[in-house]
Design a protein around this nucleic acid. Structure first.
Length: 417
RNA sequence: GGAGGGGUUGCGGAGCGGUCAAACGCAGCAGACUGUAAAUCUGCCCUCUUCGGAGUUCGGUGGUUCGAAUCCACCCCCCUCCA
């Protein structure tokens, strides 16, 4: 493969973003000639995005940074249908109000990663409900339905896998790819959008759009998919025991976000630095050269850089400092979650398990007991031996708080007010 | 509409009248070893518990039985084939 001439392709390929491109040479030539508009669609199934979508976000960011215009397409319309790709189960139907609320939350996430505005390379956010909600069934079928082959659609992975696994697929969902293809055409008309990007599971849907553009209006459209990012152990990214790794602070604190990246497996550090930070390749090579125990320094760089993108530099530095104090000095960092209680309650000598439960370190009282039995619970860094141990005012440390720990990594403070 | 198969604890998947809070695998949590890594080993993994137990689970509702995830009836949902 020859080296790309365009800044975007050169950078995206060097950093390992890309999986498939419909017409690499054609796209490269287009990009080299001037700013190009591309889009990625996001469904509004939750009020934030998580790390699973981060690669797509970074791809748009890179697109903008290399002098092009990104469109964030909110799936206000398609969310009402539900994408069957990669899922065995039909999605729950969301109400319009839920979708609107989710969209507002997602918008805030993007404001961190992209520059929005009216300029030539400023990002814009568009909602496909604008046109999908108004489609008329018969005219739509006559005008666009004829360009879609059911034979072809049945061979698409998203559909085929459901059928093979004997999982239900409703007609509603079957239409998803048609609508996504139509989105592409609509964006091409409205914004002269020439490229659709997406995760590798979107390949089929993207190609449908490219083909629709050609068949319906002889437009030349391009499709690009990103690598599927899994950890070296094969797990999908973005899931932890506590749930998804969300990108907004209401859902997941900056400190926990920082910790997520800090705990990256050795084998993933270099790859993640390239994908999820803005560091230059030279810088990344330098950091990635660290080996063995030293690699922890690279993980700290990764965590801080990734957190800075999602939550801001200042917050990222604070998270790093908190972690340093908690782990290196065994102390208490400012960013640990605090659960408030009253002096009176604390003085009454409630069992420690209550506090482990209340702080969220244990999902139930039974779990808290198990944690203590297993030797994983600590109060002020001292292992709790007795599962009926009680907490009292005497446990307050010099800072006037009690530090509870579940395992080495999860800590919380109890503070009387 | 007809015939057949199926719905079990996060997932996969055993169980098919008592010994079932339900094998096993995966995921997860904790401990050991480490580097806040991976791998490995150990323990835990429905809820509550005064640690003796207690209470709710096997699509739903009734029933048979001393006793039902297991048998019966009806209902709901899914799959396959036929129409």
């Amino acid at each position: 493969m020859t080296k790309a001439r365009s800044a975007f392709l050169a950078a995206a390929e060097e950093r390992g973003f890309l999986h498939q491109i419909t017409d690499r040479a054609g796209l490269d030539a287009l990009l080299a000639a001037g700013p190009v508009t591309s889009y990625i669609g996001f469904d509004c199934t939750a009020d934030s995005l998580h790390v699973g979508s981060l690669l797509q976000i970074m791809l748009l960011r890179l697109w903008q940074k290399t002098g092009n215009k990104p469109i964030v397409l909110m799936g206000g319309g398609t969310t009402k249908v539900g994408d069957p790709s990669g899922k065995d189960e039909t999605r729950r139907m969301l109400s319009e109000a839920e979708i609107a609320a989710n969209m507002a939350g997602i918008r805030r996430v993007f404001e961190r990663f992209l520059t929005f505005g009216d300029g030539k390379t400023d990002a814009v956010m568009v909602d496909n409900a604008e046109w999908l909600d108004r489609l008329e069934y018969i005219p739509f079928l006559r005008e666009y339905g004829r360009h879609f082959s059911v034979n072809r659609m049945l061979s698409m992975d998203s559909v085929k896998l459901r059928l093979e696994r004997e999982q239900p697929l409703t007609f509603l969902e079957f239409n998803y790819m048609v609508l996504q293809a139509y989105d592409f055409l609509e964006l091409a008309r409205r914004y002269n959008c020439a490229v659709q990007m997406g995760g590798s599971d979107q390949w089929g849907n993207i190609v449908m759009g490219v083909e629709l553009g050609r068949r319906a209006e002889e437009r030349v459209l391009h499709g690009v998919t990103s690598q599927l990012v899994t950890t070296s152990s094969g797990a999908k990214m973005g899931k932890t025991a506590q749930g998804a790794v969300w990108l907004n602070a209401d859902r997941l604190s900056a400190y926990d976000y920082w910790q997520y990246w800090r705990n990256t497996e050795d084998a993933d550090v270099g790859r993640f630095l390239r994908l999820f930070t803005d560091l230059s390749m030279a810088e990344i090579k330098r950091v990635d050269a660290l080996k063995d125990g030293e690699i922890n320094r690279a993980k700290i760089v990764l965590a801080t850089e990734a957190t800075a993108l999602a939550h801001g530099r200042k917050v990222a530095d604070e998270a790093a400092e908190t972690a340093r104090r908690v782990f290196a000095e065994g102390g208490i960092g400012a960013n640990l979650p605090v659960t408030e209680t009253s002096k009176a309650e604390l003085g009454s000598g409630q069992p420690a398990i209550h506090y482990f439960h209340r702080t969220g370190l244990a999902p139930s009282l039974s779990e808290a007991r198990r944690l203590i039995r297993g030797g994983g619970a600590r109060i002020n860094d001292k292992v709790v031996a007795d599962e009926n141990a009680k907490l009292s005012l005497a446990d307050l440390n010099a800072d006037g708080v009690i530090k509870l720990s579940a395992g080495k990594k999860r800590h919380a403070l109890v503070k009387p007010v």
